[in-house]
Write a protein that binds this DNA or RNA. Structure first.
Length: 569
RNA sequence: CGGGGCGUGGCUCAGUUUGGUAGAGCACCUGCCUUGGGAGCAGGGGGUCGCAAGUUCGAAUCUUGCCGCUCCGACCA
């Protein structure tokens, strides 16, 4: 490719709309342009990167025994109604109607589609296991699209679905996919970490997320420094906290004027925060939920959702609190009827003695409260967020936190969809059984963005060779100098013949412009051909990642050298 | 959806407070010149100032409504 013909309009300045590095770089380097919020055109350079990622994904999927197919983006409402998700999915689903007023959606995911497809064709245990995948655009009307490709409303995803006779089969497929994902992200040149994850709205249980480690990541993960435990914070279990036994004392109320937060209350009463319990109130489709955790702990909403078996949580309003007989800032479990309001108490609170909490009256808190004696929870569960001071839930070791970009997730769905959608088969005994399913996603366009987040400097992108749009750019320094320009053309043609993915910057621009663009676009290797070095029989190869400059013989076998350099990057 | 900020040529922004008929830099076109890290000179093209109503002799500027973008909170690949 000749840069003079390449559709890659670079920008000198950072567009005001872009906040994160990957978004800024992709706009500046001419990789993409916005059509609407969270919706982008991929220009040729980006499309080459995406195809490279897709091909790595394909290769690993095929090796793991999955078969590629392509399902419709537009999906009829009926199958979603059958699974029950037409109503559950909410505003995040793009919906449309045809001329006959029939309802459709743009696929946010394909469990319904694939399950109804497979159920009509697979009748026997002999046809299982089966694993199918596709790479296509997905549509989700995000509440808040942001960060360019990191959270778009239309994005490219690889989604695979496995069907097995039993849970052992699922376990095997899950492991195959887990390993394939590890290979995919390794081959893409990314620093990543698989972590235990909550399975969320997709359903099922048992899940891992593949996180690309990056400061700009939206997810927070914890990992143990001593064992191999790693989890999304919203999933992370807690190492049990024990409390020393002490004699139970009588409950009494104290005035706590103007103390709206638990920290203020404890300061006012000269109590350690560990001797207090705070409350967070939510509303859900099952009504009000009062959650209680220790004063210095935080409520984990995902755990609350799972513990209560609800779909969504919202912060409760003052009116709802008043109706339940309490008041914001002074909520406590005493006197709340656990059969009318869900009183969800963190497991660690159940072990505390003589603690302080709200008295459900403005400016009043209770002292010496004890679980069991003074109140009855509706539910006791682990509902708190792990903190850096917590011990590893597996080995008790010291944990660390990091931020990550979720580029892939694997789920064990079990029979959630096959039961709802009646995807059954006959086993060897002629008995009808639901297929045991798994699903496995890779955010292809997000992976491209994540790669940039992890590989850039002040001058631009630094592509890992495996997913770079081109491997090499050849830069003739001065087009007026015939000898060096001819040499550059020769090198370009030769490399191309040898299968190197190469562009030549044949624009009649000053060298600075070409260098700046090459750095910005992030070609892994730049070959500069100019009169000065050529006079000495040399050409220059500069490695984008390290800045290292190598002088190669212009007449010798530079092709082999270039291939060696690329192989090492 | 709630809360902040912003919409002026392709990009970055000034002008809005105090209404008087639109500007700069970059990019683009032509010519000259220049060629190892975003050169210089000269000339040139391009904007119904997000949209719609309103106030006014007169609106980018004031008022109202709408739309879009963006950032902060809950979801996800």
């Amino acid at each position: 490719m000749r840069v003079s013909k390449l559709y890659a309009p670079t920008l000198r300045e950072v567009p005001a709309e872009a906040e994160v590095i990957s978004h800024q770089m992709m706009l500046r380097a001419g990789f993409m342009r916005k059509a609407a919020g969270g919706i982008y055109s991929y220009l040729p350079l980006a499309w080459r990167v995406l195809k490279k990622i897709e091909n790595i994904v394909r290769d690993e999927m095929d090796k793991a025994g999955a078969q590629e197919l392509l399902m419709p983006i537009m999906q009829p409402a009926e199958m979603w109604q059958e699974s029950g998700r037409w109503d559950v999915y909410g505003d995040e689903m793009f919906r449309l109607t045809d001329r006959h007023n029939r309802n459709f959606c743009l696929g946010p995911t394909h469990e319904e589609m694939v399950t109804t497809l497979i159920r009509s064709d697979v009748r026997s245990y002999r046809q299982l296991p089966l694993n199918v995948y596709q790479i296509q655009n997905k549509f989700r009307d995000e509440r808040r699209p942001r960060f360019g490709l990191m959270r778009g409303r239309e994005f490219i995803m690889k989604d695979a679905y496995s069907f097995d006779r039993d849970e052992q089969g699922l376990e095997a497929n899950y492991q195959l996919m887990y390993n394939a994902y590890t290979s995919i992200f390794t081959r893409c040149g990314l620093k990543f970490r698989p972590v235990e994850a909550d399975s969320g709205a997709i359903g099922g249980s048992g899940s891992h997320e593949f996180m690309v480690i990056a400061e700009s990541g939206e997810a927070e993960i914890v990992f143990c420094n001593e064992c191999d435990y790693a989890a999304n914070v919203e999933k992370a279990e807690l190492f049990p906290i024990e409390c020393a036994e002490e004699a139970l004392q009588e409950v009494r109320n104290v005035e706590t004027p103007e103390c709206k937060t638990i920290v203020a209350v404890c300061e006012y009463l000269h109590l350690p925060v560990e001797k207090s319990v705070k409350a967070v109130a939510f509303t859900s489709e099952k009504g009000l939920i009062l959650c209680f955790v220790r004063g210095d702990h935080e409520v984990n909403e995902v755990k609350v959702i799972n513990a209560c078996g609800v779909i969504e949580l919202e912060m409760a309003t003052d009116e709802e609190l008043a109706a339940a007989g309490t008041v914001g800032g002074f909520m406590g479990p005493i006197g709340i009827d656990p059969t009318k309001v869900m009183v969800v108490v963190d497991q660690s609170v159940m072990k505390m003695h003589n603690f302080c909490c709200g008295a459900n009256k403005t400016d009043v808190h209770c002292l010496n409260v004890n679980p069991g004696r003074d109140f009855k929870p509706t539910i006791v569960a682990d509902i708190r967020l792990i903190q850096i001071t917590d011990a590893c839930p597996h080995c008790g070791g010291k944990i660390s936190k990091a931020r990550g970009i979720e580029v892939g997730q694997v789920f064990k769905l079990f029979t959630k969809y096959s039961t709802a959608l009646k995807a059954t088969f006959l086993d060897e005994n002629g008995k009808e059984k639901p297929m045991v399913m798994g699903c496995y996603g890779v955010g292809v366009s997000r992976t491209m963005a994540a790669a940039i987040e992890q590989n850039n400097d002040a001058d631009g992108i630094i592509w890992p060779v495996a997913i770079a749009p081109y491997q090499v750019v050849v830069v003739p320094v001065n087009l007026k100098d015939e000898a060096s320009t001819a040499k550059a053309e020769e090198i370009y043609a030769t490399l191309q013949q040898q299968g190197v993915e190469v562009v030549i910057d044949d624009r009649n621009e000053r060298p600075g412009v070409k260098f700046k663009d090459a750095d910005l676009i992030g070609y892994p290797l730049r070959i500069v051909v100019g009169p000065k070095t050529l006079a000495e029989g040399m050409i220059e190869a500069k490695i984008r990642k390290t800045g290292e400059v190598l002088h190669l013989s212009a007449t010798g076998d530079y092709v082999a050298t270039v291939q060696e350099i690329l192989a090492k990057l």
